[in-house]
Simulated assay, not measured.
Amino acid sequence: MRVMVLVKATADSEAGQLPAKEMLAAMGAYNEELKAAGILVTADGLKPSSKGKRVAFDGADRTVIDGPFAETKELVAGFWLWEVKDMDEAIAWVKRCPNPMPGPSEIEIRPFYEMSDFAGLLGD
């Protein structure tokens, strides 16, 4: 099962505050554990939404919206892509993660759709 593990943004990450050396070291060690376990596919951190853009669609129209975006709690600051046996394994690994932010934070786990989810729609 593939899952995307999303580190939710905070006021600190949206302000562009870089992590402390200790956090980078702890997260590096955690990522090495994920690699050794054969779970980690890829991972990365994202710059603040002030550096980003959104493209809004309305029929044939496209509108570019400059960041920053208002709802910090709905933004993503970083992610992992994991290959796990099930959601329980993903939860167990997230619980082992160092707190990714200087204060309170959240990590969201979202499964990917797989081709088997569309079996009845593909006309096989």
Results as ranks from 00 to 15, higher is better:
Val76Ser: 05
Asp61Cys: 09
Phe118Gly: 11
Leu18Gln: 14
Ala70Ser: 14
Ala43Asp: 08
Pro102Thr: 11
Gly45Ser: 12
Gly28Phe: 06
Glu106His: 05
Ile91Ser: 02
Pro98Trp: 04
Trp80Asn: 05
Leu81Tyr: 08
Ile39Ser: 06
Lys21Arg: 06
Ile39Gln: 03
Leu34Arg: 04
Ser49Gly: 08
Leu75Met: 13
Pro100Met: 02
Glu33Met: 03
Thr72Ala: 06
Asp88Trp: 01
Pro102Asn: 08
Trp80Glu: 04
Ala70Asp: 10
Tyr30Val: 07
Ala60Asp: 15
Ala119Asn: 09
Glu14Gly: 01
Met115Trp: 09
Thr42Val: 13
Gly52Phe: 02
Ser116Cys: 01
Ser116Asp: 13
Leu6Pro: 00
Asp58Trp: 02
Met23Val: 04
Ala77Glu: 07
Gly123Thr: 14
Leu34Ile: 05
Met27Gln: 10
Phe69Arg: 04
Asp86Leu: 12
Val94Thr: 04
Val94Gln: 01
Ala20Tyr: 02
Arg62Ile: 03
Ile109Gln: 03
Ile91His: 06
Gly59Ala: 05
Ile107Glu: 00
Asp58Tyr: 03
Leu75Gln: 15
Arg2Thr: 04
Lys95Ala: 10
Gly45Glu: 08
Ala15Gly: 08
Trp93Asn: 01
Gly67Glu: 02
Thr63Gln: 08
Ala9Ser: 14
Leu122Phe: 14
Gly123Tyr: 12
Ile109Phe: 03
Arg110Gly: 06
Ala25Trp: 01
Asp86Gln: 08
Ala43Pro: 02
Leu24Gly: 11
Leu75Arg: 10
Asn31Arg: 07
Glu14Met: 01
Pro111Gly: 06
Trp80Leu: 09
Met23Phe: 11
Glu32Pro: 00
Glu108Asn: 06
Ala25Leu: 12
Met23Asn: 07
Lys73Ser: 15
Glu14Cys: 00
Asp117Ser: 13
Ala77Gln: 08
Glu108Thr: 03
Ile107Pro: 00
Met115Ile: 14
Thr42His: 05
Lys53Arg: 14
Val94Cys: 04
Ala60Asn: 14
Leu40Lys: 11
Lys85Ala: 12
Lys51Thr: 14
Lys73Gly: 07
Ala60Met: 11
Asp58Gln: 09
Pro98Ser: 11
Ala77Val: 07
Ser105Pro: 13
Glu32Cys: 00
Ala29Gln: 14
Gly45Cys: 04
Asp12Gln: 13
Ala36Val: 00
Ala70Phe: 11
Asp12Trp: 03
Ala25His: 06
Thr10Leu: 01
Asp61His: 14
Glu108Val: 05
Arg54Thr: 12
Arg2Cys: 00
Leu75Glu: 09
Asp61Lys: 15
Leu24Glu: 06
Val41Glu: 09
Trp93Lys: 02
Leu6Met: 13
Pro104Gln: 15
Ala9Thr: 01
Asp88Leu: 07
Asp12Pro: 01
